[in-house]
């Protein structure tokens, strides 16, 4: 079971969190013209690297904040966690 450092609550076990996938997906701005391809890429394409992955977790059984976690997808090691509005490196 992963041990995730929530920037709001401290280190908590994974079963308090829900996963949220690729954190680098950026939603096109509202009311902005986007091409079909751009939009479909936003909806369906995800980064899924082997190695460092910036991903979202939602502390649903805790502070209910979405956080960003930098984790290695081959070792599961967590390097760093960020608040939702924190800039990532």
């Amino acid at each position: 079971m992963l041990y995730i450092f929530c920037p709001h609550c401290g280190s908590r076990s994974q079963n308090e969190f829900a996963y949220g996938g690729d954190a680098t997906v950026k939603r096109p701005e509202l009311n902005k013209e986007v091409s079909d391809q751009e939009w479909d890429n936003f909806v369906y394409l995800r980064k899924s690297p082997r190695g460092k992955h910036l991903e979202l977790w939602h502390h649903i059984s805790g502070c209910r904040q979405w956080i960003k976690v930098e984790r290695d997808t081959s070792t599961h090691e967590i390097f760093k966690t960020y608040k939702a509005d924190e800039l990532t490196e």
């Binding site: 829900a18 939603r27 979202l56 939602h58 649903i60 209910r64 904040q65 979405w66 939702a84 509005d85």
Partner: peptide
């Protein structure tokens, strides 16, 4: 609820 929190915290903070 998670959906709303997602948009409020990450997309339209």
């Amino acid at each position: 609820l998670s959906h709303l929190e997602y948009y409020l915290q990450l997309v339209w903070p």
